[in-house]
Amino acid sequence: MDLLDLFLQQLINGLSLGSLYALIAVGYTVVYGIVQLINFAHGEIFMIGAFGAYATWMLMGQPTDWNAPMSILVLLPVLIIGGVAASVTVALLTERYAYRPLRNAPRLAPLISAIGVSVFLQEAVRLFYGEIPGFPTAKSAIPFPSIPGISGSAFQFGGVTVQMTAVFTVGALAVCTVFLWFFVNRTKTGRAMIATSQDPDTARLMGINVDKVIMAAFAVGAALAAIAGVAHGLRYSNIDFRMGFLAGLKAFTAAVLGGIGNINGAVVGGLVLGVVEAMATTFIPGQFGSAAWKDVWAFVLLILVLVFRPQGLLGAKVVDRA
């Protein structure tokens, strides 16, 4: 494999991994833009999305014999809907019961509450292991169903292979970004979200129900995180209750990288982070380029950005026009 092929291969791997980060990062950024809360439990919302999809698959009787078109057109959408429903429900419940009562409390209080929610959700899922008939007892990883049609390689050019799961992940990000742009710029709730992120009191004077806007922010973030959860399951073929921790941390890094509060920034930040990780494991020589070091490089990048461009790549603060 020549150097160019290697570069392109890693670029594709990086964009696919970065799309995963980006889908999760949007949730951090949208919520931060509106309530200035770093929702530390968002990684767990992503995990719940994966488990929601998995639970849906079990409820459907663990179908394995569907043909590819049916799987892509029916099974996959159903799993995604199941995951989104689970994530959105849990996100709205945490907003209502863990964050809303603390809205006027000092900033530290909701942050600690978020950490509590994060631990709670991890443990709650872990305790289901082996308790529900059909739920594996394995304490580490649960095999995620593979969807016929979304496995193996999609196409190949030269020495570069593009996996189906990569196509799915990047495609999901593209679709979600378009949807998000439309939502923020063309719907009333979206406009209300921008107004609330800029000046919540004045937004209320306009007749905007800020509680509803906050719920919408949590719901949108959770829905994208759930899609990322399904993409993660398909990409790595297994899921576990801890998967939200590192993914959440990376996605948070991506959000800060792009400029927290800025939706475009979250997408760009996610992609940049994914590509940097992929490149670092290939082009940094010796043990520093090993897979074990990729997380180190990811956070080195975060520190560099925070030192030299603290507002993030695209600028921070408000939920800007997506």
Partner: peptide
């Protein structure tokens, strides 16, 4: 005044009519 400064005149007025 508390306008939405990055938004256009028209968007500010539309928000005024939000309800």
């Amino acid at each position: 005044r508390r306008l939405f400064r990055q938004m256009s005149v028209e968007d500010n007025l539309k928000l005024g009519a939000f309800s």
